[in-house]
Design a protein around this nucleic acid. Sequence first.
DNA 1: CGGCCATTTGACACCTGTCAATGTCTGTGG
DNA 2: CCACAGACATTGACAGGTGTCAAATGGCCG
Lengths: 244, 244
Amino acid sequence: MTSVEQSPLTRKLSAFVALSDVELAVLERLHQRRRTFIAGRDMVHQGQSAQAAYILSAGWVCSYKLQADGTRQIVDFQVPGDFLGLRSVLLRTSDHSFEPIVDIEAAEVLTSDLLEAFARTPRLATSILWAASRDEAMVVEHLVGIGRRDADARMAHLLLELSSRLMLVGLGGKEGYDCPLTQYHLADALGLSAVHVNRVLRKLRESGLVTFRDGHVTFHDYGGLVKLAEFDAAYLDQTGPLLK
Amino acid sequence: MTSVEQSPLTRKLSAFVALSDVELAVLERLHQRRRTFIAGRDMVHQGQSAQAAYILSAGWVCSYKLQADGTRQIVDFQVPGDFLGLRSVLLRTSDHSFEPIVDIEAAEVLTSDLLEAFARTPRLATSILWAASRDEAMVVEHLVGIGRRDADARMAHLLLELSSRLMLVGLGGKEGYDCPLTQYHLADALGLSAVHVNRVLRKLRESGLVTFRDGHVTFHDYGGLVKLAEFDAAYLDQTGPLLK
DNA sequence: CGGCCATTTGACACCTGTCAATGTCTGTGG
DNA sequence: CCACAGACATTGACAGGTGTCAAATGGCCG
């Protein structure tokens, strides 16, 4: 299997651990059950217990929580190479919903498949748990952002985080990336109103920092954006002693 | 060992699972290494990798993340019966700091002790992972709160959450509880300024809902507070199929 | 007694939400 | 081909929630 055919997840993990051929094979085997989901219809609904997790191979998803008053808070976005509902499977609980933002392709991973893979290749298990830990760090970082950054910095931070995550799987680079989110998605993720999201985007554009338009993010001043957001990618790249 | 002598953690887990005598014994053995920490000095500092986790047996702790501009965001509070740094140990990463809010007592749990206990009593392992999952659900709930609730509802929600958590370990009831937090702690947890926290507390007090004063929270209208916060304790009590 | 910390309060500015209207684009059906 | 509806984006006016600044109060401890 050449590197061109690698799944995004494989690509992502390989950036952090040198996986052996056996481990790579087991990993690719997890991608057997290919499924597609259409945009806008929930894959897993709040409160429903999940039988399986998914590895996203193409498209974007958001995980969110609905409130009694109808507003929603997007907890995180998933891009190719990310797990969906990994914790739901490992811990058998699920308290938020997943909605495909566009039509997506994902590999279904049964709990039994996952546990079997873990048993065979402990290093792979570690890698996947690392990915789960990274997801958590992102949620915490979002909490910090919403709690302690103003709207401009929050937006800049989110756009930069997505950039970093996408670059890991070969989608986009420092000049920009394709992004199917609407301004409503951004609003629900950042704790802002859609109207204000629009204002913020205009300001960032007119400041010559970044343009978000027609499903594409274009960085005009990456460094300036990093400074505005005080973006430190450490929480995304924590290698640490985990993978010895 | 009579129920009076049970540790808060034992008490909490027992509320959700009927643990056998063996399991209880293993659990209590995890409490061997008793340590104390003084208020205000970090136990684990951001970025430092943890060798051990702690089970908090008395006192309050907060876990927080510092930003470059000096502001801080408190991610969660820990009360007796809670784990400190459980994920740090399981996943060997730690990206936030822990600070005792008052002088505390905690039991140090080495990674090896924990893994050994897990190996001996799978049901105990499941219970502890349940606790970890509950911690995550709380972080998500805080994210939703900061993103989508106004200051009054956020405050009400936090006070109610702490109440529920403390009741589980026998500290306080529906009439109130002791709470050593300062208004600065509340501000850093809720993403507000300390001045505004004061205003919110006054409003809640003058509305006859709740009083926060002299280290004590007193509920005057529990139901009214629940309604204001749209508080649904489901995320704290998820029993689910986890514990069959 | 004199600091120091937490709390409290008022005045004011400003960030962000809400409401409302308009523009643009796409897909659909006549 | 055109009319129309619907979703998303854009913009302005205005209101309100929250932050900031500053000052006063009170309790605790050396």
